[in-house]
């Protein structure tokens, strides 16, 4: 059954059609790559899927539920979590607290219980800490749990962002250039982590990436976007050897 079905999605900014008739179907558990030259509309597509922008046309269906036009918050609750191209961590908080914020909607106690330190506060906080540490262990960040997130090295900040997104218990995880700015060994490690979280959490992933080694290495299917529309879509072998795709990336 399809986890995400996007039909005819589009948005214009003034006279610019940033994304036009965007159609994609992602099966449950699949790892899909979204590639395309700079300015092709990849991040705009992510922003449409997560409700940052409201689409002019088209529908988005997540796991059988129509989520078109919902707010970012509602879409996250429906089961889409994302990371950002430019890292957006909660820099004044610890690594552990960053992940705990991801758990915000799954582990609840009232504000009053927190202020009065009622038993539910201690119980839920303990559960949250355990769950958050479990997630951090997967990303090999458990030793840094009590560091301020701003003090993490760049590669680990990227990983923490994925960990935080994963903490919201999503059905679909959107990764916006997870390997950007990473050196080859960090990218290698990231590929292993992505594979691991797929196995462990069974999450469906759609990722934007420019690193072709990563895309070719782990993506099961690839969608190529150019000038806001589909250029190619299919298995990596076919797509990456498609002359149109090579032309769009490298020029003639």
């Amino acid at each position: 059954m399809a986890m995400l079905t996007v039909k005819n999605l589009g948005i214009s900014f003034g006279g610019l059609r940033a994304v036009d008739s965007f159609n994609i179907t992602i099966e449950k558990g699949e790892l899909y790559g979204l590639i395309g030259p700079n300015g092709a509309g990849k991040t705009t597509a992510f922003n449409l899927l997560t409700g940052v922008y409201k689409p002019d046309t088209g529908t988005v269906t997540l796991d059988g539920k129509n989520i078109t036009g919902l707010s970012t918050i509602e879409i996250n609750k429906a089961g889409i979590a994302r990371t950002f191209q430019n890292i957006r961590l909660f820099k004044g908080l610890t690594v552990l607290d960053n992940v705990k914020i991801g758990l915000h909607n799954d582990y609840k106690y009232s504000t009053l219980a927190g202020i009065l330190r009622l038993p539910s506060y201690f119980k839920t906080e303990r559960q949250m800490s355990e769950k958050a540490m479990d997630i951090l262990k997967v990303f090999d960040l458990d030793k840094e749990a009590h560091l301020l997130s701003a003090n993490l090295p760049y590669g680990k900040q990227r990983k923490l962002e994925i960990a935080r997104a994963l903490a919201t218990n999503p059905k679909l995880l959107l990764l916006d250039e997870p390997a950007a700015g990473m050196n080859p060994s960090e990218t290698e490690e990231l590929m292993k982590t992505i594979t691991l979280i797929r196995e462990k959490y069974g999450v469906t992933i759609l990722l934007i990436e420019h690193d072709m080694k990563l895309v070719a290495g782990i993506c099961e299917k690839i969608f190529v976007l150019n000038f806001g529309t589909e250029l190619a879509n299919g298995l990596p072998g076919e797509v990456l050897n498609n002359p149109e795709v090579i032309k769009a990336y490298l020029g003639e």
Binding site: V52, F84, L89, F90, I101, N105, A165, A167
Partner: peptide, 17 residues
């Protein structure tokens, strides 16, 4: 924590619901 998350990064806070 939620209040501090909003302070540190509103867009990211929205993205985690």
């Amino acid at each position: 924590r939620a209040i501090q998350a909003i302070r540190d990064n509103r867009i990211a806070a929205e993205s985690v619901g």
